[in-house]
C-alpha cells in the first residue's frame, strides 16, 4: 500500500493506493488515526485501491467511529468499484460517509 496525504486547512485528504489487507492495516491506522485525533476532517480517496478485505473494512469502521467520537468525520471519496462492492456486501453504505 502506498499513500499520499494533502492537508488543506482542517481537511486532510489521504490518497491510498494498492491492496489493503491484514498485512497493511496497522500502517493504514498509523496514518489515519493521528489525523482524526488532531480533529481533522479526513477524506479517504480510494480510487486507486484495487482490493480491500475485512481488515481494511475494519479500519474504515474504526476510523469512522473514532471521528464521530471526536466530533469530526471521515468521508470516503472516489471509491473504486471493487472496494464499493465489499462495503455494500458488509451493508455499510448507510453507515459510512460515502461520496
Amino acid at each position: 500500500m502506498a499513500y499520499n496525504v494533502k492537508e488543506d486547512g482542517n481537511i486532510a485528504t489521504v490518497y491510498l493506493d494498492g491492496e489493503i489487507d491484514m498485512d497493511v492495516t496497522e500502517k493504514a491506522k498509523e496514518l489515519i488515526m493521528p489525523l482524526i485525533e488532531a480533529k481533522k476532517e479526513v477524506h479517504l480517496n480510494l480510487k486507486d485501491v484495487q482490493y480491500m478485505d475485512s481488515s481494511g473494512i475494519s479500519v474504515l469502521i474504526e476510523s469512522h467511529q473514532k471521528a464521530m467520537e471526536l466530533g469530526t468525520k471521515v468521508i470516503l471519496k472516489e471509491i473504486s468499484k471493487s472496494v464499493l462492492k465489499v462495503i455494500m456486501m458488509a451493508k455499510l453504505e448507510q453507515i459510512l460517509n460515502l461520496e
Binding site: D53, S54, S55, I57, S58, I61, A90
Partner: peptide, 10 residues
Amino acid sequence: IKPGGLGTFF
C-alpha cells in the same frame, strides 16, 4: 457495527 468479524460473514 464494529470492526472485526466480517471475514467469516464474507
